[in-house]
């Protein structure tokens, strides 16, 4: 008779895999992707496919060069590529997008050890990198329906006068994935219902921005909704502040992370020299994540605090 397997318990698994999680998040981004193609035309699709492709190629090549186990198929590089594309203006030259993908995958992620080891969100960091080095191209926003060589127009956060319904449906200027609030909300709620992301970080992030803007504007609901719908808040809150690797592991930690992001976003938007603060706030909180984790460890059931002499 053939030999039986001896393996440690448990002998069954839930069946969720890293790859499935990545694919679900990509699926949740699809409504926003469709909206961006609808508003900005086929070049939006080209940019997204291009970024996904370049990111996956970077991941594959990097693992090859480093002689590490191949991880191109785990979906994380594809997700990073799509998220980065969501953070780019539709007019961005492809070579600049490729530089962003390289920076995200190679510098931010693989150089720190690959999936699970990077301290900062690759897509967010690449966006900030591009924003600082190629500022004029990165801020070359056009209105939906305009020709790609049209003169750059201000985003709603700068102009401050877009109708709320336009912000909700996404018919305003901005990056690919951040304009259509409806699609982002749909995707975010979908991920929460699937149990893929915890509501802790997005809700505390959005809630904090809402409370801060309400207080600052003296109770103006319009101003609050404007702050929530304009800019990259929803994209950041649902898809970047929930990145497992770079955010705290406990729900308590995630709430602190979300509140921190909310406060920083509000401060940068209101008092900073940049009109948008979502990406900076997430990056800054990414850096604080190990400390948040350290102070939000769980309290095990029945744990007894060590005696003083034991601690010494």
């Amino acid at each position: 008779m053939k030999l039986l397997t001896i393996a440690p318990s448990p002998h069954i698994r839930e069946g969720m895999t890293t790859r499935k999680i990545m694919l679900w998040v990509i699926a949740a981004l699809l409504p926003a992707a469709v909206a961006s193609v609808y508003h900005f035309g086929w070049r939006a699709l080209l940019l997204m496919v291009f970024c996904v492709g370049v990111s996956m190629a970077c991941e594959g090549l990097c693992r090859l060069v480093m002689k590490r186990e191949q991880t191109i198929g785990d979906g994380s590089a594809a997700l990073t590529g799509l998220l980065l594309a969501m953070n780019l203006p539709v007019t961005l030259p492809l070579w600049e997008a490729a530089v962003g993908c390289f920076f995200a995958i190679v510098v931010v992620k693989q150089m720190f050890g690959g999936l699970g080891q990077n301290f900062a969100n690759p897509a967010i960091t690449a966006r900030i990198f591009l924003m600082m080095s190629l500022t004029s191209d990165m801020t070359n926003w056009i209105q939906p329906g305009e020709a790609y060589d049209a003169v750059s127009s201000a985003t709603p956060l700068v102009s401050g006068d877009a109708p709320l319904m336009d912000l909700f449906w996404g018919s305003t200027g901005g990056c690919l994935g951040e304009t259509c609030a409806a699609a982002l909300l749909f995707g975010g709620v979908f991920l929460m219902c699937m149990g893929i992301i915890s509501p802790a970080a997005p809700l505390s992030f959005i809630g904090t921005v809402a409370v801060c803007s309400l207080l600052y504007s003296g109770g103006s609901v319009y101003e609050m909704l404007y702050q929530l719908l304009a800019g990259g808040l929803l994209l950041g809150a649902f898809f970047m502040a929930t990145d497992y690797v770079t955010t705290p592991v406990t729900n308590k930690g995630r709430v602190i992370f979300g509140i921190g992001c909310g406060v920083l976003t509000f401060l940068i938007r209101t008092f900073g020299s940049y009109p948008e603060g979502v990406s900076f706030s997430i990056l800054l909180m990414n850096i604080l994540t190990p400390y948040i984790d350290k102070f939000t460890t769980t309290k095990p059931l029945g744990a007894v605090k060590p005696q003083k002499e034991d601690a010494a």
Binding site: H11, G114, L115, S198, Y244, V249, T298, P300, L301
Partner: peptide, 24 residues
């Protein structure tokens, strides 16, 4: 059982959320 590959921890926190003793 079908063989499954073990990959890097992605810090999703599912194990923390599942532990009845609230361990990490």
């Amino acid at each position: 059982a079908k063989p499954r590959r073990t990959t890097a921890c992605i810090r999703c926190g599912r194990c923390i959320g599942a532990c009845p003793m609230k361990l990490m």
